[in-house]
Amino acid sequence: MLPKAQPAIAALRERGLDATLLTGDLAQAAERIAALVGIKNVQAGLSPEAKRLALNRLRDDHGSVAMVGDGLNDGPVLAAADVGIAVGSATDLARETAALVLPADGLWMLPWIVDVARAVRRTILTNLMWAFG
């Protein structure tokens, strides 16, 4: 999964988006993984509730937040995110609470999903403009 994550994170950054790693793992391991994939912001040692609170702080600071997760403890956070995205190898709870489920090797799809969502939003706004104009 790591080889696919680095180009996906770089492509998201090119689109003006930032990534934060919220994990229950130990800080040393989390920082090593984050460095490998190009994530600068890391919050480690978090319980599921602490992840949800961190997600809410990110939303307050940056607006809408998408969450990508695969673990049992990611379920509540995926449900709380504006867009919850589970990877195909995720636990049943993560897959059930996410709005999108990617294939097991589908992290490369994240930038494409952002592009499609932005195009759909533009189309909706244009149609509304025509409808009310």
Score class of each variant (00 low, 15 high):
29 A>Q: 12
122 R>N: 11
85 I>D: 00
95 R>Y: 04
99 A>N: 06
12 L>H: 05
84 G>Q: 04
84 G>I: 08
16 G>I: 04
31 E>Q: 14
76 P>R: 05
75 G>F: 01
72 L>P: 00
98 A>D: 03
58 L>R: 07
30 A>L: 10
23 T>R: 04
133 G>W: 11
56 N>T: 10
107 L>E: 06
115 D>H: 11
46 L>Q: 03
113 I>W: 00
80 A>R: 05
16 G>H: 11
119 A>V: 02
89 S>H: 11
91 T>K: 01
123 T>E: 12
100 L>H: 02
99 A>L: 07
31 E>M: 09
119 A>Q: 06
20 T>C: 13
56 N>R: 10
132 F>M: 12
94 A>S: 12
20 T>A: 15
57 R>S: 11
3 P>Y: 07
21 L>P: 06
67 M>V: 01
91 T>R: 01
53 L>H: 10
48 P>R: 01
68 V>P: 00
29 A>W: 04
34 A>W: 02
115 D>I: 09
1 M>T: 14
34 A>C: 04
32 R>W: 12
62 H>G: 06
34 A>G: 03
96 E>P: 01
85 I>N: 00
42 V>N: 01
83 V>I: 14
35 A>Y: 07
1 M>L: 13
111 P>D: 14
82 D>C: 10
63 G>L: 05
51 K>C: 03
93 L>P: 00
81 A>Q: 06
93 L>N: 01
54 A>R: 07
118 R>G: 08
23 T>L: 09
41 N>H: 13
52 R>G: 05
21 L>H: 06
15 R>A: 14
119 A>P: 00
95 R>L: 08
41 N>C: 09
106 G>P: 03
29 A>P: 09
116 V>C: 12
14 E>S: 13
125 L>K: 10
95 R>G: 03
79 A>N: 06
110 L>R: 04
55 L>I: 04
124 I>G: 01
40 K>H: 14
74 D>P: 08
49 E>R: 07
71 G>E: 09
67 M>N: 02
132 F>R: 11
107 L>V: 10
121 R>Q: 13
4 K>L: 15
12 L>R: 02
32 R>E: 15
121 R>K: 13
4 K>P: 04
104 A>N: 06
35 A>I: 09
97 T>M: 12
111 P>W: 15
